[in-house]
Simulated scan of single mutants.
Amino acid sequence: MAAVHTRRRVVNVVALTLSGCATLLGLVFLAWILWVTLKNGLGAIDWKLFSKITAYADQGGLSNAIVGSLVMDAIALLICAPVGVLAGAFLAEYAHRSKLGATIRFLNDILLSAPSIVLGLFVYVIVVLPMSNLTHGAVSFSGLAGSIALALIGLPVIVRTTDEMLQLVPGTLREAALSLGIPQWKMTVQVLMRAATSGIVTGVLLALARLAGETAPLLFTAFGNNFMAWHPLDKMESLPVAIYQYTNDPNPALHAIAWAGALLITLFVLTLSLLTRLLFSRKKVPHE
């Protein structure tokens, strides 16, 4: 017994040490990335970055790219968030152990791991080309097509997290609600989703974080626009595409603007995550 106890303690210490080293290594790389982004992007952030458009090259800014990213990300979330939450609820509560649920989860995992450029080409074929036929041959790149591509990227993330978060809700809540005669759909919406709200919102934020940095699908759908565009049916610039274009240019001034755009994306996702955590932490504080 003493030898077994000693072996378990040694294995436990080794496992804790390795996991701690892995965590520390990940934090070091994360801090390194944040530091490099801050160092290179902070100096390029000024008023003209938010007031001028990319058409003025190294003397311009990213206002049209910021607007385009916000519009396309908002439309994409409006498409994928409700569908993803409802699909995740269906998998967790109605198709938990069925063959249909297993098939949907398998297909969702495939969609989750699919390269974003493939989804961009898919939307190019089913949205951009048909719209081009309506305009007599002119290729109809648009912000709407970009939003649909982004929605396909964010959808499997939300489905997966909603499914897992609802499965983590204790079964006693389901039994208590059903014992009161509440219909299952009402139990899912009013009891289970409320209990898993923080996890579901976290999944939506994870999807938004992924959408904010996608470049490849937007090259085949929204394409880009050096001028300000508000209408979803027009070509739209976005921060990831502007960063991609600027980093391929030999002009150092454009490289600085690209770093500033990368910093804006990082700060946007970080601020949104912190505000959400603060909101839910306040809700958990008991009222006296």
Score class of each variant (00 low, 15 high):
G20C: 07
R105M: 03
A207P: 06
A209S: 14
R160G: 10
R160I: 03
L70M: 13
T6R: 08
A196N: 10
T162A: 08
L25M: 07
A15I: 07
F29V: 15
L111K: 01
F223D: 00
A2G: 05
A92Y: 03
V118G: 05
S116R: 04
F268N: 03
I257P: 02
N248A: 10
A151G: 09
I153T: 09
P183Q: 14
L112I: 04
N12P: 00
E288L: 09
L275E: 01
A176M: 11
N12T: 11
S147E: 03
L77H: 02
S147C: 10
Y244F: 15
S19C: 11
K99W: 12
L206M: 13
L18S: 01
S273Q: 11
A74V: 13
G181H: 14
S51G: 02
L30Q: 09
K186N: 15
A65R: 08
P252W: 14
A95M: 02
L112M: 12
N64G: 07
A149N: 02
I148L: 10
N226S: 14
S179C: 14
I158R: 03
L272E: 03
D249G: 04
A177Q: 11
N248D: 13
L208P: 06
R97L: 05
L192C: 09
A92C: 04
M193T: 11
G101R: 02
D163G: 01
A87W: 08
I182S: 12
I66Q: 05
V241P: 03
N40E: 11
P217A: 02
W47Y: 09
N133H: 15
H5N: 09
G43V: 09
V83Q: 03
N226I: 12
F29P: 00
W259C: 05
F50P: 04
W185L: 15
F280R: 01
P183L: 14
P156S: 09
P170V: 05
A15P: 01
L180E: 12
T54V: 04
F106D: 01
G41N: 08
L121M: 12
H5R: 11
D46N: 15
V159I: 15
R105L: 07
T103N: 06
K284A: 13
T161L: 14
W259L: 05
A145D: 00
A65C: 07
L77Q: 10
Y56V: 04
S63T: 11
L205G: 14
S147I: 03
L25W: 05
A44F: 01
L168K: 15
G120A: 08
I257Y: 00
T161K: 01
G84T: 06
L173K: 08
